[in-house]
Amino acid sequence: DDCIQFTRHAGDVLLNFNRLRSRNILTDVSIQVDGQLFRAHKAILVACSGFFYSVFMDPENASLSAISLDPKVDPKAFSILLDFMYTSCLNLNDTVVVTTLNTAIYLQMEHVANTCHRFMKSRSVQ
């Protein structure tokens, strides 16, 4: 048997999920971050964040349709990480990298946190 692999499939699926998010189609949770509301798909949040995995794998929380994060979480950093979840692009710059690192640690996204750390070291070196 042959397996025909569509090499673009993973990226095309994620792009469609981001289209669904921007049209608010099948989004099933509202995340409140310091007054700002973000609509998202629980499955994407759980797939990308250890924090959301532990929250929604708890049977008591599985049907939650709204969750508010610790007020110390920065909305701008959260939106950068949410966009990363849906696009694979992490939009870093010197002004957001520290809060994005802290928020990635809070959301238990250690690979992203490591990347933020390397970004900071490279910039301070230059």
């Binding site: 797939a47 964040s49 995995y53 794998m57 979840m85 692009c89 250690e110 690979h111």
Partner: peptide, 21 residues
């Protein structure tokens, strides 16, 4: 994205969900 240089990160991006808990 205009004027943004893209750095390719080849490593793992997110946690891996276990086959069963």
């Amino acid at each position: 994205y205009e004027g943004v240089n893209t750095i390719k990160e080849m490593g793992r991006s997110i946690h891996e969900i276990p086959r069963q808990d």
